[in-house]
């Protein structure tokens, strides 16, 4: 039972990732898709940081009186990934705004419909 319960952090990451995946597939709204994508991203961050955690350890800042530190490597990777994720999110939102200007909509169905049926007809 203890062995079974030792993975709940991973499961939470998986649940969050699947909520994000569901939003990306099921929702037609482009902004909603981006929200789903950022949920998926944070789920991956959670997975990495969970792997780096050691029970009873402290934050990886070397100081007197501490010997056990959590793994700093995932922290480095995720720290940069968070700032990159907001930059890429900004690019996605900018594309959405540009699409809205060109098509007058942010719904996937309507955009595809407009692509199939040219406006001149």
């Amino acid at each position: 039972m203890a062995e079974f319960l030792a993975h709940y952090n991973y499961w939470a990451a998986i649940v969050l990732a699947m909520i994000g995946l569901f939003a990306v597939i099921a929702r037609g709204n482009l902004i909603k898709k981006l929200i789903g994508l950022s949920l998926f991203q944070t789920a991956v961050f959670l997975l990495f940081i969970t792997i780096g955690k050691i029970t009873g350890a402290t934050a990886p800042i070397v100081g007197a009186g501490f010997t056990l530190y959590s793994n700093p490597l995932p922290h480095v990777l995720i720290l940069t990934a968070i700032v990159v994720s907001v930059s890429t999110l900004a690019v996605g939102l900018a594309l959405t705004v540009a699409i809205r200007r060109a098509y007058g909509s942010t719904e996937e169905d309507e955009i595809q419909h407009k692509d199939r049926v040219p406006e001149r007809e």
């Binding site: 961050f45 780096g52 955690k53 720290l79 968070i82 700032v83 907001v86």
Partner: peptide, 15 residues
């Protein structure tokens, strides 16, 4: 809680 204080800092400002 997971000891990633630098990441927490970034997430609070960015997220």
């Amino acid at each position: 809680v997971l000891d990633a204080v630098d990441v927490a800092f970034t997430e609070a400002a960015v997220g």
